[in-house]
Simulated scan of single mutants.
Amino acid sequence: MSSLAEPDWEALARHPQFRELVSNRRRFVAKVTAFYFAYFVVYLALLGYAKDFMANEVVGISLALWGGFSICALTMIMAVAYARRAPEWERMAQQVVVEASR
């Protein structure tokens, strides 16, 4: 297949390996997004309804600030988790392209 040729997108979309790739990636993103959303909502709820608790200090820093730091850390952790899974998805995508070009 020439690099300038337009692939048959409909055929690729019907390919079982492509469907597996999309399903695998969608499941990962949905789970991670749901976890992040729940974590963030709990953090906001604690900020709003447990002000005295969040005002407690650990190592001289309030729990509210530690929670904010944890959100930033969680974002980085999720980015690393996605980056670690990306090569697997790339391999799956390459397999679909090879199969489709036959």
Results as ranks from 00 to 15, higher is better:
Phe37Glu: 00
Asn56Glu: 12
Leu74Glu: 07
Ile77Arg: 07
Ala100Gly: 13
Ala13Cys: 05
Met78Gln: 12
Asp52Ser: 11
Phe53Tyr: 13
Tyr49Trp: 14
Glu20Leu: 14
Ser3Arg: 13
Leu63Cys: 04
Ile77Pro: 01
Leu4Met: 13
Trp66Ile: 04
Ala83Val: 09
Tyr82Ala: 03
Leu63Ile: 02
Glu90Pro: 00
Val59Phe: 15
Tyr39Pro: 01
Ser3Trp: 15
Ala64Pro: 01
Ser70Asp: 06
Ser2His: 12
Glu6Asp: 08
Cys72Trp: 12
Val98Lys: 12
Phe35His: 10
Phe37Arg: 01
Leu21Gln: 06
Tyr43Met: 05
Pro87Phe: 09
Ala100Asn: 14
Lys51Val: 05
Tyr82Ile: 02
Ser62Lys: 08
Glu10Ser: 12
Arg25Asn: 10
Ala100Met: 11
Ala55Met: 03
Met92Glu: 05
Leu21His: 05
Ser23Gln: 12
Gly48Tyr: 04
Ser23Val: 04
Ser23Trp: 14
Val29Glu: 13
Gly48Trp: 08
Leu74Val: 05
Ser23Asn: 13
Trp89Asn: 03
Trp9Tyr: 15
Thr75Tyr: 08
Val96Ile: 02
Gln17His: 09
Ala93Gly: 09
Ala50Lys: 14
Leu65Glu: 08
Asn56Met: 10
Gly60Tyr: 08
Val41Cys: 12
Tyr82Gln: 01
Glu10Phe: 11
Ala38Asn: 10
Ala79Trp: 07
Trp89His: 07
Trp66Ser: 04
Phe40Ser: 08
Gly60Asn: 07
Val22Ser: 11
Met78Phe: 13
Gln95His: 09
Tyr43Leu: 08
Phe69Cys: 01
Ala100Glu: 11
Leu4Phe: 15
Arg14Pro: 00
Val80Phe: 08
Tyr39Trp: 10
Ala73Met: 08
Ala34Asp: 04
Phe35Tyr: 15
Thr75Cys: 11
Arg27Val: 09
Ala11Arg: 15
Glu20Gly: 02
Arg14Gly: 07
Asp52Val: 10
Leu74Lys: 02
Val22Cys: 05
Ser101Ala: 14
Ala5Met: 09
Phe40Val: 02
Asp8Arg: 05
Pro7Tyr: 06
Thr33Lys: 06
Ala55Pro: 03
Ala11Met: 13
